[in-house]
Design a protein around this nucleic acid. Sequence first.
DNA 1: CAGTGGTCTAGACCACTGG
DNA 2: CAGTGGTCTAGACCACTGC
Lengths: 272, 272
Amino acid sequence: MHMARTSSNDPPAGQSLTDVLAGPALTPGTGTPAFSPLYQQIKGLLLQSLQSGEWKSGAAIPSELDLAARYRVSQGTVRKAIDELAVENLLVRRQGKGTFVATHSEQQVQYRFLNLVPESGDRASEGPAQRTIIDCKRLRASADVARGLTIRSGDAVLQVRRVLAFGGVATILEDLWLPAGPFKGLTAERLRSYDGPMYALFEAEFGVRMVRAEEKIRAVLPDEQQCSLLAVPTGTPLLSVERLAYTYKDTPMELRHGLYLTDKHFYRNELH
Amino acid sequence: MHMARTSSNDPPAGQSLTDVLAGPALTPGTGTPAFSPLYQQIKGLLLQSLQSGEWKSGAAIPSELDLAARYRVSQGTVRKAIDELAVENLLVRRQGKGTFVATHSEQQVQYRFLNLVPESGDRASEGPAQRTIIDCKRLRASADVARGLTIRSGDAVLQVRRVLAFGGVATILEDLWLPAGPFKGLTAERLRSYDGPMYALFEAEFGVRMVRAEEKIRAVLPDEQQCSLLAVPTGTPLLSVERLAYTYKDTPMELRHGLYLTDKHFYRNELH
DNA sequence: CAGTGGTCTAGACCACTGG
DNA sequence: CAGTGGTCTAGACCACTGC
């Protein structure tokens, strides 16, 4: 078996890291073992603890020294693993306090996944969004929805429709599709009674943390129903935002289609 | 003067880093000196060398060991500085070869700042864009343009208009505004004769490297002229993409307004 | 004050590239 | 094979938090 480390720097005997790893991690199709740095393996273990729910949303994970002892590696190595998870927004470091599991239920990151901002650029000025749940239905996945969520066509899904308004002006119309399994018990009433971002509710009620998402954006003209829900005249161009949101391990957990009125707002993006 | 390091770990006497730094780096408004880690200061020096043109686009910068010797710090410290610049896409690391100044003139990153992708998701399949320069005029900055580029209203700017087509289908109509100073001598002919991304030409001809950009995206309806240039019927919704591109030191160097036809393409974005 | 993350060093060794 | 970036360790000390 290929090991990441075979030098004299190996930790003293005991339950070494390689003992708890699954296998040699071969690269399929090549005869050469895939080199996997120790910190990447640690990262995988941390990810596992996150996914398994060992550490709850918003809670502190063990200190770097504790983790180093647990995995029998140096602090620097777990640091590097945590660094990457922090960059990916799965963990949040707070100097002097500890390292915490990222969550959608904090004021400062309320809109982590919403790139629509008011013309002024200042979200605080327009105040919080007014959320209106239109309905929440259980139905069978269409081919499109099934493909997005990588489930079988016809599998049970929940469809949520809602409108977001800012300063009393309806601005976003959204349809969401969720796999019925992980979100069993979700109702329109529950959605209406929850005061906070939907992803925060998903964390709290269903233990589902959205970690990453991809969006496909187009310009479209709304149909009659969409016009009436957003209270805009026909012929008003809207942003169509199709989002696929993933939880850990790149598992798609939500398909979302949004229509954004970009009259007084715009979709902000940063390029690097 | 506040120094980042005052411990016994200080390097031996000689031209230490603090000798070459400008000042104490106070935080305005507070009486406490701003703590600036060594690697951040190194990062600033590297940035300076990039900005001054000491290292050309695409060229290798000195090795980590060389830089460590130059600045009299450990390899790990310059490593951390380079790490950040690599994350920001200012530098590119290549194991075994060296660290290079990022450039827009490489095949693999041709479309670093263009988020429009074909429906298939595969850019290679549609081949390279056909670029048509419509004109390149020298004129006086309007209030809007001046505000974006943080110059004075009425200052000389260059305006470029072009159309990009994919597979023969006009898809993007763009207007660019550039400060006339840094881009002195730019003509429509020069733009037409250059085979490659415009930002690559900017690097090669004017030493201007675009490093970062912000985009504001809206859905709009094109006017008559825009319709004819893109060969779409009136009433076709288009993506309006307003980009402000920056070079080093957060200096805005280009204002760009694009209209994207999202019929067979979409604007792709990743959320974290 | 103890405990946390953050910085810095010095040195060893590994993986990769090219002559 | 020498030179580059990449990993890992061990240990010291700094900055920040909260009791």
